[in-house]
Amino acid sequence: MSNTQSLFQQKNDLRHRLGRFTNHGDRFWVAALFGSSLLILILVLMIGWEVWALSAPSRHAFGWAFISPWAKAAWNPALDRFNAWPAIYGSLVTSAIALVLAVPFSIAVAIFLAELAPPLLRTPLNYMVEMLAAVPSVIYGLWGIYLFLPKVVHPIGAALQNTLGVIPGLSTFFGGPIPASGISKLAAALILTIMVTPTIAAVTRDVLLAIPRSQREASLALGATQWETIWKVLLPMGLSGILGAVILGFGRAIGETMAVTMVIGNTSGGGYSVLKPGYTMASIIANEFAEAVSDLHSSALIEIALVLFVVTIILNAISRWLVMRVQRKTMGR
């Protein structure tokens, strides 16, 4: 009896002491919150610092000529001369084509999902868009090599080289012949189109859904058709958000590595024609970083990573600014 009581007392004592600890636990809690939040900040700063510091030899050796389209030197690891322009051009042209094709396409998809789809279809279609975004990029690459390139890209490329490719001014960009396997910048651009479409469509759909119902009702009540309501009311209202979606898509396209590496042909030659193989910034790193023996070679690749990092910062800053604009606009109303 006395034994159990003392045990009880002990327990109570423990409970008391634990209680004191737990009540004061908030200091640790706030410290943990603060610490881990700081960690992510430090992480990002460290990425920036690493790519900046490790690219020093290349920055000093080549300066701005490294990213200049007019520099004489090409990408030549054998002679330790590096000019990233072919890779930058590859990234720009593939992303640009992808966006030009994907933006109208994904806005149309978003309109259907947000405005037209009957409720029964809405869920499966939303799933479809999410799945399209979720398929790992290596699987896009595998599908690209064995199916998409020979079945779709090569015929399109062959058609382009015979139409646009023979027009004097455009032959620089569409000069053929496209390799018989379909491997080309065009292949990368078309795969990127498929990959960024769900990203842009999903964000645009959310933007459209966020616009109050009253706007639609007012427009329809004035006698506008549904399309006129979308075109003249909803899209202008959501413009900032849609621009944000496009920027997000651009970020995804320019950073995409594996699928592009598998279909672009990986050469720093190829010139300006989209029907020819090439490189993108991400794919040149994927191909060469593991074996960049000379310091200059590896720092040149890290400088490309630096360029990608800076591009990411700029894109994020723009989209932040767009979000702020949207907020101000909606708050002003």
Partner: peptide
């Protein structure tokens, strides 16, 4: 605000750049 921005940045940084960072670190 800084942390939200870095989170966005981290999710936007191409994964290959994170690979280089991981190799160095």
């Amino acid at each position: 605000v800084a942390i939200r921005f870095s989170t966005d940045l981290l999710s936007g940084v191409p994964s290959i750049v994170i690979g280089i960072f991981g190799y160095a670190l």
